[in-house]
Every structure is written in structure tokens, then in C-alpha cells.
Amino acid sequence: MNEQVPERWTKAGVHPDMWVDPDDDPRESAGPSPDGELATFQDFLTNYRLTLRMKCDGLSPEQLATRSVPPSTMSLLGLLRHLAEVERDWRNWIAPGEPAPKLYGDPDGDFEGVRPEQSAVDGAIADLEREQAATDAEFAKHPDLAARIGSTQEPARSLWVHRIEEYARHCGHADFLRERLDGRTGQ
């Protein structure tokens, strides 16, 4: 196998194990972490969402659609689509009424249907942003973290933690995918 391996690199100059320098990191905030459990959950979720987007920044549609290693269907573009689908699923779990249909079909349409085209990238980002906003709005109706919500009557706290866990896990995948594409490393 004569695969070209990219050289590892980072944009950070202050801390070479970071993605960017602290002054350029949109996840960094001046001051202490937020007070309260809900504010902490929201802060972690926001930062993981930003991390995923940062791992995708600056790549071509072809790079974003590049799969990890066979037989995996995982790609950065697939992760964007997958997380849009997951956001919709969470909203379906807690919102009353009929569940919204799958965005990309079953099974694994979020990964299998990836195309290396700018319109597919733009569509995935728009889908993710729309689904995040809609799910955030639904969660905002349930500020009591101990309240049991949705059809499964899970505590809101549990669903928040699951959302954070889902993004954290996939940001780990994104780290490896990005490094494989162009060698860029960092948190």
C-alpha cells in the first residue's frame, strides 16, 4: 500500500498540541466557567459543536467526503449529516406529536449518501444548524433537569448528558479523520 501520509501540523504557536492559539479559539471565553448545571451543559455542547465545525473548516468537498478506512463509511461530511439526524432524533424523543422523518433515509443514509460536492456540504451544514436550533428550542421548554420528558420519560439531565457525549465521541472521530486528510492535529 503506497498511501501518501501527510505531515502532522498545527496552526497553534503557543501550545503546539492545540488546534489554534487560545486568542484565536472561538471556544475560549474570558472569565470563569458558567454557573449552574444547565449553563454548564449548554457551554459544553456549544464547545463540542464548535469543535466539530473547526475540524471541517478549510477542507474541500472531496476531503470532507473522504472515508476513514475500509470498511468504515465514516467521513467528516458524514459526521455533519449524522449529527443533524441525531439532533432530529432527540427532538423526536421529547417533542409531542408525530416524529419528523429521517433526513437522509435508512439505514446509514447519513454516511452512505455522502457526495463530494459543495452543494452537499452546504446542505449538510444547513441541515445541522436547522436541526440544532430546533432541538435547542425544544430543550429550552424543559429547564428543570430532573423533569421526566418525552415519550420515554427520561430525565432532561440524562438527555443533555447524552447529547454532549454524542458530540464528544464524534469530535474524537473528527480528530482522526482530519489528521488523516491533511495532518492537522490538536485538541
Rank of each mutant, 00 (worst) to 15 (best):
E3N: 11
V5E: 14
K11S: 15
W19K: 04
V20N: 04
D21E: 04
D23N: 09
D25P: 11
R27G: 06
R27K: 09
R27I: 01
S29T: 15
P32Q: 05
E37P: 10
L38C: 07
A39G: 03
T40F: 12
L45I: 13
T46C: 10
T51E: 11
M54S: 14
D57R: 14
L64R: 02
A65F: 12
R67T: 13
S68F: 09
S68C: 04
V69T: 15
P70N: 00
L76S: 10
L77K: 02
L79Y: 03
L79E: 11
L79P: 04
R88C: 05
R91F: 01
N92I: 10
W93D: 08
G97W: 01
G97N: 03
E98F: 03
P99Q: 02
D106W: 07
G113P: 00
V114T: 14
R115F: 04
R115G: 02
R115V: 07
P116F: 11
E117C: 03
E117Q: 13
A120Q: 04
V121K: 00
G123S: 05
R130F: 02
A133M: 02
D136R: 12
D136W: 11
F139T: 00
P143R: 09
L145V: 12
I149S: 10
I149A: 11
Q153S: 15
V161I: 11
I164K: 05
E166R: 03
Y167F: 15
Y167E: 08
A168W: 15
R169H: 08
H170P: 03
C171I: 03
G172R: 05
D175Q: 05
L177Q: 06
R178L: 09
R180S: 12
L181N: 13
G183F: 13
